[in-house]
């Protein structure tokens, strides 16, 4: 096999797992143990009746590494299905962020105006602060957060990407 350097790709992978103790540690341990990257990882129970959770992982690597990641995930015993949303077709991906801005005067007004442009909602307010809720692509949130820096950005909490295939396809 020639050692041609392969391009690094970013993939969003959805994994349906049994919601049992240790399952997240298994997934994270797999990534750290084998030296794969995690850009973001979200997890929550999505089917209470079946005790199943959905994990969404954004990762980067060469095509060979991405294939490995999927194969390694798929052979974990509590994993039901692995779906590479990036490879399998169009999908929508969203992230939610809570952004705290502490400022006064014009800066405060400007923060509110930009929040309006980004369709961020103020979900908490005091005389000296706002907490904005913003949803969108990771890039949109990055842009919003960067704009808030000179306007008194104090704290950011982000969920990481959740994603789902477009259309009628289902996992």
């Amino acid at each position: 096999m020639p050692n041609t350097p392969a391009a690094i790709e970013r993939h969003t992978i959805a994994v349906i797992v049994d919601n049992e103790p240790g399952v997240l540690a298994r997934v994270i341990g797999l990534f750290s143990g084998r030296g794969y990257n995690i850009e973001s990882l979200t997890v929550a129970e999505t089917d209470a009746a079946k005790h199943q959770s959905r994990i969404t992982i954004v990762t980067t690597g060469t095509p060979m590494v991405i294939e490995q990641i999927k194969a390694q995930l798929d052979r974990l015993v509590p994993v039901h299905r692995v779906s590479d949303l990036t490879q399998e077709g169009a999908h929508v991906a969203r992230e939610l962020a809570l952004v705290k801005v502490i400022s006064k005067g014009n800066e405060r007004v400007e923060a509110l105006r930009i929040a309006d442009i980004f369709r961020a909602k103020a979900i908490d307010s005091t005389i000296g602060s706002f907490v904005f809720e913003i949803t969108g692509s990771g890039e949109k949130i990055d842009a919003f957060v960067n704009l808030m820096v000179p306007l008194g950005l104090a704290e950011v909490s982000r969920t990481g990407i959740v994603a789902i295939a477009r259309g009628e396809t289902r996992m």
Partner: peptide, 10 residues
């Protein structure tokens, strides 16, 4: 083991 395929050698 599908994860053995293309792990070291294409």
């Amino acid at each position: 083991d599908p994860s053995s395929i293309n792990k070291n050698v294409r």
